[in-house]
Design a protein around this nucleic acid. Structure first.
Length: 325
DNA sequence: TAAGATAAGAGGGACAT
DNA sequence: ATGTCAGTCTTATCTTA
């Protein structure tokens, strides 16, 4: 009970704040979702709220290492147990016909219970999703700032009723992948499927992909096209290639971009093909098969990108290093 | 064995109906 | 809302050096 009153105070306090970004506009907040944002410009202002009460979403950088938490947070438990399980069952099963004022009371309580149940399912969903989010982020070595972003995206999705009828795990993975794309963090969609159960990884890729697009559209997000070079270090280290080869690959990609030879292609395959070309020009033996495995794309795709890249860069490439093959 | 070539199919975007 | 089209990527199979 005390928790709820203090939450209410927090709620009012936050409601009266003003957005530091765009001036005098009011700030909209929903303590149940832990969401605080500016109604006008969309700026997220949830830091203060984070500090005031310990919550499931408050993973600081220190906390990130230690598994954040596994159970539901205390405040959410209050909301759930206090209203849904304590109040109504105590009034309900008296069995006899109630006097009229008591019936009115019952109706009010039922309304509250309905609200509390709705809210608690909302909260249970969030709790589960945040646990999964933390697990995924840990598995894929995703920094906490990006995970935080993903949590925000998930909450918005939940608010817009995008989760109902869909897998929480898949939506969570899609949120995290979306956050990676938004922050240009080099993570591939297939990794998110691998992080779940292996047997249906293939189906999961499609599922996550669908939800990724769904979220992107529903939340009106503009995804920056990522630069193929962000994938170079990972692929190169998988292959044990030198920094010099990486630098050559970077040059190749830059030239290719200037010739508009990379648009519409998977950045990962561009990066992989550039590395293949660079390694070959450097007389370091590396097979297409190895490159394909390191980049997690198929050999055929490597070949196609290899062909299109060499074609696009024909002048520079042939004059620099290699005659023909 | 590595690399090239070809074909068929999936999934989704653009566009028209 | 539904269908078609062009393009990408994948899987599979065969050929070539």
């Amino acid at each position: 009970m005390e928790m709820r009153e203090s939450d209410l105070r927090t709620f009012k306090l936050l409601q009266q704040r003003h957005c530091p970004e765009c001036g005098g506009t009011t700030v909209l907040t929903d303590p149940a979702a832990g969401e605080v944002m500016c109604r006008a410009c969309g700026l997220v202002l949830d830091e203060d709220h984070l500090d005031q009460s310990p919550e499931w979403r408050a993973f600081s950088p220190d906390e990130q290492r230690a598994r954040v938490r596994s159970g539901p947070p205390t405040s959410l438990r209050y909301l759930n147990g206090g209203l849904a399980t304590t109040f109504l069952p105590r009034h309900d099963p008296s069995g006899n016909v109630l006097p009229f004022p008591a019936q009115q009371t019952m109706q009010r309580l039922q309304r509250w219970q309905h609200r509390a149940q709705t809210q608690s399912s909302h909260d249970r969903n969030l709790t589960q999703a945040m646990t999964e989010l933390a697990r995924l982020a840990d598995y894929l070595n995703i920094p906490s700032t990006v995970t935080e972003h993903a949590a925000f995206l998930y909450r918005k999705a939940l608010h817009q009723n995008l989760v109902r009828g869909r897998s929480i795990h898949a939506i969570t993975a899609a949120s995290l992948y979306l956050a990676c794309r938004l922050t240009q963090l080099p993570r591939q969609l297939t990794m998110f499927a691998d992080a779940n159960e292996q047997p249906h990884a293939r189906a999961r890729v499609k599922e996550i992909s669908r939800y990724y697009r769904l979220l992107q559209r529903a939340l009106n997000l503009e995804i920056p096209v990522d630069d193929p070079t962000i994938y170079l270090p990972k692929i190169a280290s998988n292959l044990g290639l030198t920094q010099r080869i990486q630098n050559t690959a970077i040059q190749l990609i830059h030239s290719a971009k200037q010739r508009h030879a990379v648009v519409g292609k998977n950045p990962v395959s561009i990066a992989a093909a550039a590395l293949y070309i660079a390694a070959r020009g450097d007389a370091t033996p590396v097979t297409q098969k190895a490159v394909a495995a390191a980049a997690e794309v198929t050999e055929v795709t490597i070949r196609n990108r290899y062909k299109s890249l060499t074609h696009a860069l024909e002048l520079e490439f042939t004059s620099q290093s290699e005659p023909a093959s």
